[in-house]
Design a protein around this nucleic acid. Sequence first.
DNA 1: TTACATGCTGTTATATTATAACAATTCTAA
DNA 2: TTAGAATTGTTATAATATAACAGCATGTAA
Lengths: 133, 133
Amino acid sequence: MTRMHKENSLSKNQQIIFDLIDKSPEPLKAYTILYNVQKKGINAPPQVYRALDKLVEVGKIHKIESKNAFVACKNSDCEISKATAFSICESCEVVDEISDIKLSKYLSSFNHKKGMKFKRFNLEFFGLCKKCK
Amino acid sequence: MTRMHKENSLSKNQQIIFDLIDKSPEPLKAYTILYNVQKKGINAPPQVYRALDKLVEVGKIHKIESKNAFVACKNSDCEISKATAFSICESCEVVDEISDIKLSKYLSSFNHKKGMKFKRFNLEFFGLCKKCK
DNA sequence: TTACATGCTGTTATATTATAACAATTCTAA
DNA sequence: TTAGAATTGTTATAATATAACAGCATGTAA
Ligand SMILES: [Zn+2]
Ligand SMILES: [Zn+2]
Ligand SMILES: [Zn+2]
Ligand SMILES: [Zn+2]
């Protein structure tokens, strides 16, 4: 495989899987991804999960924890995913990444009474989107 | 089974499983729960998951989505779990439910630009607890 | 009473999500 | 060019969660 020199580049499998997630209008589950990349020679779950792990690590995608599904970051990689917020429609299941500076600042500077210093947060809002309400 | 008349009461299985979670200093996973209640005659996963679903629904417990584990609500049942926030230590895995009125109000009144009205949120903070940092 | 609806239970089987373990190859920096 | 790191490919298995069906208890309506 033609490999570029460094840092920002994704490996072959990572790129294939990122492209699929990035094109998708909805969060994708790991096995949905697997079925959709088998034609590209990715045959087994570990190949998918490894790529997903890496993509999450570098902030190219996020995991929607309440759905076990993955979306591409729409938000300059969220400072490597330290501060993520999503709106999730309980009816049509559409997920949008929220990018609200005030919200992000507010939560990033939130300090726990018990002396814990937070490095990261994930926030998931649920409701009905415009179309569904 | 002796059935009480209504509302607040939990069924036998629900009570057994709630008691176990409530006593636990840490979040419990479904199969950990299963192993621990087999002596009480709860033998199969659906029995556990059904009780968990109900307990979540009535706000007696919460699911920590990033860990697939359950904790008892420490916070007057969080208005039936409409507004939950947790701190999670990435080292020792201790989880605390955050009850911060200002935070809760701020998030409950947060409105999405795209016109979505939120009914519920779940927030998970990650970091190192006092002991681990 | 009978009939029906609801909620809980028990059970088997299966679906879905995720990782362990190992071998081989490719990339990168020195 | 060579050693380490990252990535890949592969098989098997672990961990998490639900489908489907049957039974029983309670409450309510006919
Ligand atoms: Zn993002
Ligand atoms: Zn919708
Ligand atoms: Zn609570
Ligand atoms: Zn800790």
